[in-house]
């Protein structure tokens, strides 16, 4: 009987409306996902630009990109997050000051997206570069021969063809992005892991909240895996039919 009572008080702590913490956890999950999505998107943009630079850019551009990807992939995310989180907004505002613009307010969400994006960018540069170099040169040459502009070639030939090769790597990066957001807890950004810690500390039900948060993260991974599988099937199907 005591056990059942214990379990029911524990579960009431997870109720969606206060004083239950369920709603707060979901809110935290939402901000984790926001940062993961934003950071992943920014990372993809950096990745595409970086891959183009590494493949088609001049020597200086390639060397600089090499430094970026090597450094980011060798330094722990936690250190990068601390560096970028504290230095990032400072730097932006100093540049703005230098250009005689007024300082801007960079909130935690934007800073988080920026940090995750820079980290993700280095990895996706490598993934996309690998996928792009798997595209037969003939396809690109043919597109140019048809009179396409470089921008069109990128949009119509390179990106769609690249996607099939890059999908495994890119989906792996998405899963990493969702988990890397947890590191922002260390700088005090209110996302799922930090809220979990506050809930655990506040209520003293550590196991309950850490397991609940684990389940939330796990379901994000499982749903993502399911979506990735669908996308993969779809891409393979369309590729086979063309």
């Amino acid at each position: 009987m005591q056990l059942i009572a214990d379990i029911s008080t524990s579960l009431s702590l997870l109720a969606f409306s206060p004083p239950g913490w369920g709603g707060a956890l979901l809110k935290g999950l939402l901000s984790s996902l926001q940062i993961a999505l934003g950071g992943y998107g920014l990372g993809l943009l950096i990745g595409i630009a970086g891959a183009c630079g590494k493949l088609y850019g001049n020597a200086v551009c390639r060397d600089l990109l090499g430094c970026y990807t090597t450094a980011v992939r060798a330094v722990p995310e936690l250190v990068l997050i601390l560096l970028l989180y504290y230095a990032g907004s400072d730097l932006v505002n100093q540049v703005l000051h230098w250009l005689s613009y007024p300082p801007i307010d960079i909130n935690g969400l934007v800073a988080g997206i920026f940090v995750i994006g820079i980290v993700q960018g280095a990895y996706s540069t490598e993934v996309i570069r690998g996928a792009m170099s798997a595209i037969p040169v003939g396809h690109i040459e043919a597109a140019f021969a048809c009179g396409m502009r470089p921008w069109q070639v990128l949009k119509r030939i390179i990106l769609p063809e690249m996607l099939v090769h890059a999908l495994p790597g890119l989906s792996n990066l998405w899963l990493i992005a969702t988990k890397d957001t947890a590191l922002l807890a260390v700088v005090g950004f209110t996302e799922l892991t930090l809220i979990t810690k506050q809930a655990a500390g506040g209520t003293k039900h550590h196991m309950l909240f850490y397991c609940a948060a684990g389940l939330l993260y796990l379901s994000v991974t499982l749903i993502s895996n399911w979506g990735i599988k669908k996308l993969d099937n779809h891409l393979r199907h369309t590729k086979a039919s063309t």
Partner: peptide, 8 residues
């Protein structure tokens, strides 16, 4: 693999 190491 589906949960953050920090949480673990």
């Amino acid at each position: 693999r589906g949960t953050p190491l920090l949480l673990q």
